[in-house]
Design a protein around this nucleic acid. Sequence first.
DNA 1: GATGAATGAGTATTCATTCAT
DNA 2: GATGAATGAATACTCATTCAT
Lengths: 223, 223, 223, 223
Amino acid sequence: MTPIAEPTGRSLRKDAERNRQRILRAAAEVFRERGLDATLDDVARRAGVGVGTVYRRFSDKETLVAELFQERIDELVSAAEKACEADDPWDGFVSYLEYVATTMAGDLGLRQMLLFATYGRDRVAYLREQVRPVVDRLVTRAQQAGALRADFSATDVPMLTAMLATVAEYAAPVQPGLWRRYLRLMVDALRPDGATPLAPPALTAAEMELVVRAHSSREATRR
Amino acid sequence: MTPIAEPTGRSLRKDAERNRQRILRAAAEVFRERGLDATLDDVARRAGVGVGTVYRRFSDKETLVAELFQERIDELVSAAEKACEADDPWDGFVSYLEYVATTMAGDLGLRQMLLFATYGRDRVAYLREQVRPVVDRLVTRAQQAGALRADFSATDVPMLTAMLATVAEYAAPVQPGLWRRYLRLMVDALRPDGATPLAPPALTAAEMELVVRAHSSREATRR
Amino acid sequence: MTPIAEPTGRSLRKDAERNRQRILRAAAEVFRERGLDATLDDVARRAGVGVGTVYRRFSDKETLVAELFQERIDELVSAAEKACEADDPWDGFVSYLEYVATTMAGDLGLRQMLLFATYGRDRVAYLREQVRPVVDRLVTRAQQAGALRADFSATDVPMLTAMLATVAEYAAPVQPGLWRRYLRLMVDALRPDGATPLAPPALTAAEMELVVRAHSSREATRR
Amino acid sequence: MTPIAEPTGRSLRKDAERNRQRILRAAAEVFRERGLDATLDDVARRAGVGVGTVYRRFSDKETLVAELFQERIDELVSAAEKACEADDPWDGFVSYLEYVATTMAGDLGLRQMLLFATYGRDRVAYLREQVRPVVDRLVTRAQQAGALRADFSATDVPMLTAMLATVAEYAAPVQPGLWRRYLRLMVDALRPDGATPLAPPALTAAEMELVVRAHSSREATRR
DNA sequence: GATGAATGAGTATTCATTCAT
DNA sequence: GATGAATGAATACTCATTCAT
């Protein structure tokens, strides 16, 4: 784009950034389609760069995956925020669940990341850290509006999304939207009327932390 | 054949059988804890035998995994049958869900087998073949008793159990019974009164077959 | 594309090409001396590179073997063409036999490739495809000159060369040229005068195809 | 067979000998059909005994193969002797060649043993030791009768048979008798009339010894 | 900085051989 | 003696990661 001259300095950094983006985009595609078993060579090829370049930008496969995950988290956070501003608190809440499930339904790599402790389980901890406050608000808001049963907890949300991800994973090749059926089912159960007391109680935030940590430490032993 | 005498050959078989059991036990542990990526060398080490011995007993990693899976299937089928004979059709239905969730809780290998079809996808087909009729009965029975909403389908059952298994897996180290909370939630939704129409519709039996098959072919193309 | 400049990438390719050649040379030696059972690790060691490098250049053991074989084919075809242009049709014919026998002498791998079809049987088919027309001409030409008995067939040529190669293989370490003795013997028999009718008839081209195919399928069933 | 009593002593040895024969027979079949790559487990299975028994009778796979080879040698020697007593010296000579080629044509293992230096090349040395005197006689007799060209040597015989084995190997699956065609060809060349002087000269007996030794020592280095 | 070549530990599986029963 | 169970070194091939150009 910049015609002549300027061979060093800024243009290089611009190139670098462009490559970084390319790689992230390529990785997102590749992992989405083929799961986390895909090779970094595959990613590099799709990005149109050499593997070396990938390693220059991301010290590790793990790191690259984590970076991608972070992108999803960011998107998730803004989705949650947007959902918080919905006119109807209940609709906001449900639309957030829908958003998460939709995202996961279309992304094999993401599902593997969430459902199996093979890659960077500790990222999930970080995710919760980020999203939690917003989700808290989302839940409280719906409950205060009397639309969501009182014994529902913010820590239930990640569990529900994991459950939907499971369905998505299972049905992905045949009926990618099947998870909506189970979202409906849950939603029916989440209304305050006629609900049976839930037991055991939801995880506390601290317990939730533990859950996630337990997963990652198990991970640590593995390799 | 001859129940008396035959002191030779028999004692050998005893040893062999002992090793076979050791291997199965070791494999169950290893795959449960570390998933299906675990090596047969790992299994052998855990069992305290050489790899060759593992291969003498199980022609394949695939075969070994399948054998383990078969054990679970058998248990599942009898659980379903027992559930069918419960006095209260609804209780029977719920207790089956409980049984399956409990079984899958904490078994990473089992979940991988069900969700990602690297090993023994045909086995999953077989599993469904075995359990389906009993589950059909279980569901019909609960619906005829007016205890289960009419738009619920037998193909919903594996989905629900997979969902519960996901929760179990997540929470296992901290709160192993957490999945019961979500079982309650679902159960609330499954009652016929006040239910919202479910959409999309449940998978037909044929579609369910496809889901399973699709997993294996996806797997095939992946490599 | 641009023949000037481009100092990067090119020098790498030089290295890579050098290694490729090293590997091919090493493979030629190893397979020649120790047959096709030799390991690619052996080849790598001889070439002074890691196994990975071998696999980077040749996707398969099969492929590497085929590549080596292809080199021989190319040489063979040009030898046959040159032989076709000899002033004396008979001398041309004989010199071709000499060439082939010389080439195969002492190359255990090459002989295994021709006799036992573990690797690159399709290549043998391809070889025949390539050489056959030229050999046909070579034979016809000698027969039309009245120098070669009429019941000789082009499909006899590979058989004769295989036979000579066998002798060469046997005698290589002691008397590398011994095969010439048997070439003389055959040549005596190939003259048209005083020849006994040959039975059974030579293979037809189609049968020859079958021979080659049969080897591969036999191989297939064996494992 | 022996009814009661006599549990130790002779009957055991009889059993052992019977097993030995069974194993040899089984090995002959298995190696004939599937070549020397066949497993000793395969042999044991075919023989209806355990592998352990095979190892009790034959210290080694190599040894078992050698033993089989010896059987063939013995048969070969008697064939040669019988051929020596033929009324027509020439016919005797040719029938010997036919006998050897026929034997090899039907036996993949034998061909591998003879054509490739993978198994027990030194056995070939031994073979020659045994057969040489008879073959000498066979050749001399035919030459004295004026039926065989004078420059033919006894050391040419193993070469001719190896050549025929090559054809047999090649054509085995499609046209197992094709070697006869080339035997005819050679026979035409072996008549004394109209023969071109053969060069280089045949191997001397000493050289032949060297050839064989060279093969086996090459073998030694391999493992 | 970018490239892609090189590396080698790691994986599933086989088979000759040994040894407990 | 016979059995077949156990062993483990060996083989083809992959992929995350490093490094020379």
